[in-house]
Simulated assay, not measured.
Amino acid sequence: MTDRDTPEQTRKPTAPAKQESLLANLLINIIIPALILAKLSGDDWLGTKWAIVVALAFPLLYGLRDFLKTGRANFFSGLGIISILLTGGISLMELDAKYIAIKEAAIPALLGFATIVSLRTRWPLVKTFLYNDKVLDTEKIASRLAENNSVSAFEQTLKQASWMVAASFFLSSVLNYFLAMLILTSPPGTEAFNAELGKMTALSYPVIVLPSMIVLILAMVFLFRRIGKLTGLKLEEIMAAHHR
Results as ranks from 00 to 15, higher is better:
Glu236Pro: 04
Phe75Glu: 08
Ile28Glu: 02
Gly88Val: 09
Gly78Tyr: 00
Ser152Leu: 12
His242Arg: 11
Ala195Ser: 12
Leu95Cys: 07
Ala51Cys: 07
Asp66Tyr: 13
Lys140Met: 12
Met93Ile: 07
Pro16Leu: 08
Leu37Asp: 04
Ser162Gly: 11
Thr48Pro: 06
Met200Lys: 07
Val126Glu: 02
Pro33Arg: 03
Arg144Gln: 15
Ser168Leu: 04
Pro59Arg: 06
Ile52Val: 15
Lys199Met: 15
Ala38Ile: 13
Ile183Asp: 01
Thr2Gly: 06
Ser91Ile: 07
Leu92Tyr: 05
Thr128Met: 11
Ser162Ala: 09
Ile36Val: 15
Ile32Leu: 14
Pro59Leu: 10
Gln156Val: 08
Leu130Ser: 01
Met220Val: 07
Leu136Met: 10
Glu139Cys: 06
Gly71Leu: 01
Leu37Gln: 05
Gly198Trp: 03
Leu37Ser: 06
Leu184Gln: 02
Leu136Cys: 05
Arg72Ala: 14
Ala34Val: 10
Lys69Tyr: 11
Thr128Ser: 10
Asn194Leu: 06
Lys49Thr: 14
Asn74Gly: 06
Val215Asp: 01
Thr115Ala: 13
Met93Phe: 12
Leu56Thr: 11
Ser91Thr: 14
Gly189Pro: 04
Val174Ala: 14
Thr138Asp: 09
Leu230Gly: 06
Lys39Ala: 14
Gly228His: 09
Phe193Gly: 02
Thr70His: 14
Leu136Asp: 09
Leu64Trp: 10
Val151Gly: 05
Lys103Val: 06
Asp43Asn: 14
Val151Gln: 14
Phe154Met: 10
Val207Ser: 03
Ser212Ile: 02
Tyr205Ala: 09
Tyr62Phe: 15
Ala219Gly: 06
